[in-house]
């Protein structure tokens, strides 16, 4: 198991390195005048030369690449072309917002999705099962920005018109400052993420539960005289968690994508909004920094998922 995890960690490092190389190739190796990008259109040749020298752009590509990797391993992501701020500072400022959004959203989607799936599977083909399946299909087939807009329209705008500011967008209060306000500003973005992805989990959980409920060991659990509640929650749900965790590992990547869209829709000052602005302004260090960071996060999260798998299934723990 330890060897397996080490191997996975090595693979993860390789993936991050590949991503770093890829962004380097895309942004620096292709013919594009980065110096002009920074100095502006009217800059004289001398200015450009100075900028090139300062950024090392006059060096051969391989040297640039070596320096780039060298800085990366020291955790130095460079400075923003626009604000000259270190990218790490920008990330450190933005990441609490994105982390709050992503972790809260994921927690809510797991909670909503799994419980909806369990309730549906407990009474297959009943009215509640059909209702849950229909609602899940509805959200499943909607793009998340649309869900966000709908939530804003019904839960913010309608109340706003009536003079109540219930869940205003565009603000963020750190958790450490005021947990209630933190939740208030994040609840709609969380729902946006949770409803769309949670729908997948409702369907997934329902299917896994129905399969588990047909297993022989469920009959044994019933024959032991356990309550139906216990049969469902302790026995059937327990077996259904493994496929859910597998799916979760797959979805962690798209969680960051979803967070970007959601931050833009709700005007949250997070990494997603930062990177969108950076792309518009061609602020390469910021784009690269965020890209590498998110690949590292996804790799790390998948490692966690592996650990979770081992914790869930004794047959994996060898």
């Amino acid at each position: 198991m330890i060897a397996y995890l080490l191997r996975r960690a090595a693979w993860g490092a390789l993936v991050v390195w590949l991503v770093a190389t890829l962004v380097f190739v895309v942004y620096f190796a292709v013919p594009r005048d980065v110096a002009r990008l920074i100095a502006g259109r009217q800059a004289s040749e001398e200015t450009l030369a100075v900028v090139r020298a300062r950024l090392g752009l006059d060096q051969p590509l391989i040297v640039q690449y070596g320096r780039y990797l060298g800085r990366l391993t020291k955790g130095d992501l460079g400075e923003s072309f626009i604000t000259q701020e270190p990218v790490t500072t920008i990330i450190a400022r933005d990441i609490p917002v994105t982390a709050s959004l992503a972790i809260g959203g994921a927690a809510l989607w797991l909670l909503l999705g799994i419980s909806a799936g369990v309730v549906a599977a407990a009474r297959p083909r009943s009215r509640i099962d059909r209702a849950i399946t229909a609602v899940a299909l509805f959200f499943y087939s909607m793009p998340s920005f649309l869900v966000g807009q709908l939530l804003l329209f019904f839960l913010f705008f309608q109340f706003y018109l009536a003079g109540i500011e219930l869940f205003p967008p565009g603000s963020y209060v750190p958790l450490s400052e005021d947990p209630l306000q933190w939740m208030r500003f994040l609840i709609l973005p969380w729902l946006t993420i949770a409803l769309v992805t949670g729908a997948i989990y409702a369907r997934l959980t329902r299917g896994a539960m129905l399969e588990a409920l047909g297993e022989d060991y469920i009959r044994t659990a019933r024959a032991k005289g356990l309550s139906e509640r216990r049969v469902i929650l302790r026995h059937a749900l327990r077996s259904s968690l493994s496929p859910v965790v597998t799916q979760f590992g797959i979805d962690i990547g798209s969680l960051l994508g979803g967070a970007i869209v959601t931050e833009v829709v709700f005007g949250l000052p997070g990494l997603g909004r930062e990177v969108v602005q950076a792309i518009l302004k061609q602020d390469l260090p910021v784009i690269i920094g965020v890209t590498i960071l998110s690949s590292a996060l996804v790799v790390g999260a998948n490692l966690l998922v592996d650990l979770l798998h081992a914790a869930l299934d004794p047959r994996v723990r060898v």
């Binding site: 022989d216 060991y217 024959a223 327990r238």
Partner: peptide, 11 residues
């Protein structure tokens, strides 16, 4: 039951 391999919860 008949099949002991599948009649106990594997987890």
């Amino acid at each position: 039951f008949q099949n002991p391999m599948s009649c106990l919860h594997p987890l």
